[in-house]
Design a protein around this nucleic acid. Structure first.
Length: 490
RNA sequence: GGCGUCGUGGCCGAGUGGCUAGGCUGGGCUCUGCAAAAGCUCCUACAGCGGUUCGAAUCCGCUCGAUGCCUCCA
């Protein structure tokens, strides 16, 4: 039987601002859409955090036995820069003297490479905005026909005030349109709009604009909120289960999506809105536009001004999951170092699992422990609490090896498989320690351990300590236990 | 200015109307040739001020502080 039938999952819904019992539209199936990156520069760690949160959610939903269609788009057109109406992709192309689609390709590859290093599962569908121009034009036609958009000078804008007469623009972000009117006065640069809070569905391209498509209104490009509506509807239906993204997209982006889809399809597009919180650096949100950010590769290589040393992808992953996805997380060297130590401790325990001997009875309630792991994840994907339970498991492992506790064959098997499920399948961590110590290194170290044992038996402490210290200098730590010496590679 | 979120022990970070978070750091003990590892153990907390309550860090109000959005943004 599928696990989702016995696990009641609760999800925090941004729309209701409360945790709700998750019930998919179609039993056993989940449709999930997450706003992906705009590929005009390298993804920074803040971007990655959001995607990582949804990678965890994707992984857990799959583990529960749901058939998940996970759609994460690539925004390769459509974002306006603030100084003019050129879009971000073509601005960058001019700066770098290359074709717009070359920029798109370059940073899409970068995005995929980074996510692969961090052991992400690929989404089911990864559609691009430029691949769905026709669908977007269809939606604009429909909204125009329904009288909730208007055309001016070849551009089409969504009429927010008219929409708000019958619907609630601000339902997600808790705003009301009147406030928006008062407070966008200073920023009202685009005078062709009827009202400052109207947003573009289609923008006419000027002469210098390279990325452009024909449409009934002008040669131009789609507005930046439209692609998500078009692609989510196309692949997941008019109403689907989960829509995710960063907290900063709540307004206006997701608000606009709701408005577009409601007009287009007459139904609420999303049942559960999920928003991942921001990653903070130097007390400020990480952001490309302010320059306050760090790139994943800079973390892995150590080439940055923030961290004292390099950190592996799994250590970085572990750091992220030690905080809840809905909490603001502060990125610091000390924080990463603490997480790395915890991660290594966990992996070390996993590598020792095979040393546990089967006992005749069980002195630990493995079923109760396992249930706590599920309870944590069922409570809005509470990864920090799951990790706390995994550290309980580390404690168990050491006690079992010391024979201070015992497990029956059946319980031991369940214990091992549960650890593997949560550490590798759900959290998506990798056993980096094991990969680093090849058979050859293991053989050499085992030989040195034997030599050291002889020295210790002869009370030749000088030689014994020399072997230990020189190995330590190479990053190989020896650990003397009751049943001999083991080692770990850092 | 408007709409939000948050303020937990040395640090990072869960959670909750009365009952242990967890990790890192520091102290003690056990083990050990010594150390490390491992085990046990100790330390300290819920921004401030009021209110509700038998009882609040947890609910309500105010104050202070931080931060996000309101303009592209994960």
């Amino acid at each position: 039987m599928e696990l989702y039938k016995t696990n009641q999952l609760k999800i925090y819904n941004s729309l209701s601002k409360s945790k709700e019992i998750f019930k998919p539209v179609l039993e056993g199936n989940v449709g999930m859409y997450v706003c992906g990156p705009t590929v005009y520069s390298n993804v920074h760690l803040g971007n990655v955090r959001t995607f990582m949160s949804f990678d965890l959610i994707f992984r857990y939903l799959k583990h529960l036995g749901y058939k998940v269609r996970y759609v994460r788009n690539i925004t390769d057109a459509g974002h306006l820069t603030d100084d003019d109406s050129e879009d971000k992709i073509s601005t960058k192309a001019r700066l770098e003297k290359i074709e717009p689609m070359e920029v798109v390709q370059k940073y899409t590859v970068d995005f995929h490479t980074i996510l692969q290093k961090l052991n992400f599962l690929p989404p089911s569908i990864e559609p691009t905005a430029t691949g769905h121009i026709i669908e977007q034009i269809e939606i604009i036609n429909d909204i125009l026909a329904k009288g909730l958009a208007y055309e001016i000078n070849g551009s089409v804008y969504f009429d927010v005030l008219k929409y708000n007469k019958t619907e609630n623009y601000g339902i997600l972000s808790g705003r009301n349109v009147e406030d928006t009117i008062e407070n966008t006065r200073a920023l009202d640069g685009q005078s062709e709009k009827k009202n400052p809070q109207d947003f573009a569905l289609w923008k006419k391209a000027d002469e210098s604009h390279i990325m452009r498509w024909p449409s009934p209104w002008s040669d131009g490009f789609p507005g930046w909120h439209l692609e998500c509506s078009a692609m989510s509807t196309k692949y997941l239906g008019k109403t689907f289960d989960i829509h995710g993204g960063g907290m900063d997209l709540k307004f206006p982006h997701h608000e606009c999506e709701i408005a577009q889809s409601k007009v287009n399809n007459h139904v609420n597009p999303v049942n559960y809105w999920m928003h991942a919180n921001m990653l903070i650096l130097n007390g400020q949100k990480m952001s490309k536009s302010t320059g306050n950010y760090i790139l994943p590769n800079e973390i892995f290589s150590g080439e940055n001004n923030i961290l004292n040393k390099p950190f592996s992808p799994s250590a970085t992953r572990f750091f992220m999951f030690q905080a809840n996805y809905r909490s603001i997380l502060d990125f610091t060297s000390a924080g990463l170092e603490a997480s790395e130590k915890g991660y290594l401790k966990l992996i070390e325990a996993i590598n020792k699992l095979d040393k546990i001997e089967i006992g005749s009875t069980s002195t630990i309630d493995i079923k109760a422990w396992k249930q706590k792991c599920y309870d944590a994840m069922n409570d809005d994907f509470n990864s920090p609490v799951l990790i706390a339970q995994l550290f309980e498991a580390v404690k168990f492992v050491n006690l079992l090896i010391d024979k201070k506790e015992t497990l029956s064959a059946e319980d031991l098997e369940e214990f091992k498989s549960t650890i593997h499920v949560f550490v590798f399948d759900v959290l998506g961590l990798q056993n980096e320690e094991q990969q680093d110590s090849s058979d050859k290194i293991s053989g050499v170290v085992e030989m040195l351990i034997n030599m050291r044992k002889d020295a210790r038996d002869n009370k030749d402490w000088a030689l014994s300590d020399k072997i230990r210290d020189e190995l330590a200098a190479l990053g190989i730590q020896l650990k003397d236990g009751k049943d001999g010496t083991t080692f770990s590679v850092n």
